[in-house]
Simulated assay, not measured.
Amino acid sequence: MAVLIAYLRTCKGGGEERIGVEIQRAAVEDWARRRRHQLAAIVSEAPSAGGLEDRHGLAEALAALHQGLAQGLVVYRLDCLDSALVAQEQLLAEVRATGARVHSLQPDEAAELRRIPADPSRQGVREVLRAAAAIQPQMAALRSRRRRHSRPGAGSPPYGYRIADGSLVPEPAEQAALVRIAELRASGATLREIARELDSNGHKPKRGERWHPESVRRIVERLEPR
């Protein structure tokens, strides 16, 4: 038996239909009862909650995990955490950092969560997130030096990030583009081919409207291990 926190948020089911929190609540309670898990709390997100910064229910659930009040987080499906794969992986990493596990009621997702994912898309996301995490200490030192030598507001964050309250935070849309760049490069695509693919799929560069091979090269050099 495990002590878990249930997180409910309206999300899409397997197709286009949306699964409301009441349906999720009944399903989660039944799932926990059959597996003899204890639900320490059931937190649901307000329909008006949009981005991660507005998710008060999610913040409450993560705070409880950090305090050791539960051993895991259960969701109806991973899309209920967030529909963006990059955001999902960031949230999964956040939960794992507390020593807790994430459980999904969907059998395929549950199996995936029990092992290192074989899904190439998730592998690509994790590679990018690991690369981003590895460079954070250097970036923190660089930001500190920049503040001493630059006027306030000077400079711009690297692709994949934005400035919030004076710190670098991931920008989900740009993180998704980083994942795609890593996948294409791993498959042998040239810089020009990657630029065309990013343009055709609506991924925007930090500046301007179109990608250029030189911009792609700078990002590839940043992502590739040295």
Rank of each mutant, 00 (worst) to 15 (best):
R148L: 14
G153P: 08
P158T: 11
V128L: 12
S156Q: 14
R126F: 01
Q136G: 08
R146F: 09
M139H: 01
R130Q: 12
D119H: 08
A154G: 13
S144C: 09
L142Y: 13
L142S: 02
G155E: 10
R148F: 09
D119C: 04
I135W: 09
R130H: 10
S156K: 13
V125I: 05
R126P: 01
V125H: 00
Q138V: 13
A133I: 04
G153D: 06
S150T: 14
L142P: 01
P120Y: 03
R122I: 03
A133Q: 13
R143Y: 01
M139V: 05
Q136S: 11
E127Y: 10
P157S: 14
R146Q: 14
Q138C: 08
A141Y: 08
R145I: 10
L129R: 07
R148I: 08
R147A: 12
G124T: 04
A133R: 12
A140G: 03
R147W: 12
D119Q: 08
S156A: 15
Q138I: 08
S156N: 05
I135T: 14
R145S: 07
G124H: 02
P120N: 03
V128I: 02
R147L: 13
A154Q: 15
R130Y: 06
E127C: 08
P137V: 06
P152W: 00
A154C: 14
S150H: 12
R151S: 13
G124K: 00
R130V: 05
P158C: 11
A141E: 05
R146L: 14
E127I: 04
R151F: 11
Q138W: 10
R151D: 09
P137Y: 02
R130G: 08
V128K: 02
S156G: 03
P152S: 03
G124L: 03
R126E: 05
Q123W: 01
E127V: 06
G155L: 07
A131N: 05
A131W: 04
V128Q: 02
A132H: 07
R130F: 07
V125E: 02
S150N: 13
R143A: 07
G153R: 11
H149G: 12
A132T: 09
R122Y: 11
A131F: 03
E127D: 14
G155W: 12
S150D: 15
A134C: 07
P152L: 08
Q136M: 13
L129A: 04
G124M: 04
A133N: 03
A131T: 08
Q138F: 07
Q136F: 01
R122Q: 15
P120T: 00
E127N: 12
P120H: 06
P158F: 02
V128C: 06
R122D: 05
R130D: 12
I135K: 09
P158W: 09
R122G: 02
H149E: 15
A140L: 09
A131Q: 07
S144A: 14
S144I: 07
A140W: 01
A154V: 06
A141F: 10
R143T: 06
L142M: 10
A141M: 15
H149Q: 12
G124N: 07
A132C: 12
I135N: 05
D119Y: 12
V125Q: 03
P137S: 01
P120L: 13
I135P: 01
R148K: 13
Q123V: 00
V125G: 04
R145Y: 06
A154N: 14
R143V: 00
R145P: 00
R122H: 10
G124E: 04
L129H: 02
G153W: 03
R148A: 11
A140T: 07
A141N: 10
R145K: 04
P137Q: 06
R147T: 10
M139W: 13
R147E: 15
